[in-house]
Simulated scan of single mutants.
Amino acid sequence: MGCQTLHLNPQFLYNAPNTRRFSLQPNLKLLKTTSLSSNNLNEPLSTATINQTQNPTTHSSNVNFKTLGDCKLGISRYPDFDYNASGGAGSGTATKLSDGQVYVEFDVKKLSIPPLSTATTTFLGLPLPPFLKIDIVPVAFQGEINQESGKVDLKFIAEFCFSVGSLYKARPLLVETVLTSEESKGKMREGRGERMDGDGKCRLVGVATVEPINDLFMDTFLSLPTECLANLNAVISFSTTE
């Protein structure tokens, strides 16, 4: 037995900027075209016109994501876990939408987030028992970032896989939320993030509803359905590509 990953296609969950499900809609502008009249059909087109037509200007770059220490994770009405996520990292692409606004998409196959374990996590001041582990398996991570204001809104979908040594492995808990630098508020849980500073450092929060997984122990222990809160300290940086 192991953590069985649900084969979700992020394209159906959060598509390209003009077809996304949740309300992070960019202000897209229609490209204005100029028709050629019969009077100028025989006139040669300038090199600039040809280049503009065949090679429209694109603004793309690489984006990098790193998780830091001083994070928190909470579920149900239990106190929050203190979580050191140092070492987590991922990369992806960023496409300019408008002044300062970019759409980013991370490669979840290369996105790693440290598990909750005795080495990374404490609960009520005590480390998690050595045999308890919660793996985080990203399924989708994409959204919009305003490089001028520092505002971040990233759709995050992941499976949380609980295990107790080799004795017990629960079905994955599917968590879907928007990690934001603003405020995230549910019925039970809430948090407020911090916008990116000049070094790309930010705090991202997100409240999600966790549904039952048809596992009697987990459903009862966590009082599913319930809410969970992610509070991540992170750094986001960009590098230009040709």
Rank of each mutant, 00 (worst) to 15 (best):
V104Q: 06
L154D: 04
E105M: 06
T120F: 11
Q147M: 15
P130D: 11
K155H: 14
P138M: 02
Q147T: 15
I145A: 10
T95A: 13
F106R: 05
S98V: 08
F123E: 04
L132A: 15
P127T: 10
P115Q: 06
K109S: 08
V152Q: 03
V139K: 11
K133A: 09
S98W: 08
T120L: 10
A140E: 09
S91K: 13
S91G: 14
G92T: 02
T122M: 04
F131L: 12
L124Y: 11
G150L: 07
I136F: 13
V152F: 02
F123T: 08
G90S: 12
G92V: 00
E144T: 15
P129G: 11
L128I: 06
F123K: 03
D153H: 04
L111V: 07
P129D: 14
L97Q: 15
D153E: 09
V102F: 05
T120V: 12
L132S: 11
T95E: 10
A119V: 13
I134R: 00
L97G: 07
L116F: 10
I134T: 04
F156R: 01
S112A: 08
P127D: 10
I136W: 06
P115S: 12
V152N: 05
D135M: 09
G150I: 04
E105W: 01
K109F: 05
L154R: 03
S91L: 10
Q147F: 07
F141A: 12
L116D: 04
L132T: 12
T120W: 09
S117E: 02
P115D: 09
E144P: 05
K96Q: 14
Q101F: 11
L126C: 13
F156Q: 04
V102E: 08
D135C: 06
V108A: 07
V137N: 10
V152E: 01
I113G: 05
P138K: 00
L97W: 04
D153W: 01
K155A: 11
A94I: 03
G100F: 04
V102C: 05
V108S: 07
T120D: 11
K151F: 10
G143I: 00
V137W: 05
G143E: 01
Q142N: 13
L154T: 05
T122Q: 03
T121L: 01
T122V: 02
A89R: 09
K155R: 14
E105T: 06
D135W: 03
G88K: 01
P130T: 14
L124P: 08
T121Q: 00
Q147R: 15
Q142M: 08
F106H: 07
A94F: 05
I113T: 07
L132V: 12
L126H: 09
L97K: 06
F123W: 12
Q101Y: 08
D107T: 04
I113A: 08
S149K: 04
G88Q: 01
F156A: 14
P129Q: 14
G100Y: 03
S117D: 09
Y103A: 06
G125E: 06
T120R: 09
T121H: 01
P115L: 07
G143C: 03
V108K: 03
L111P: 07
D153V: 01
K133G: 09
L124A: 15
K155Q: 13
L124G: 13
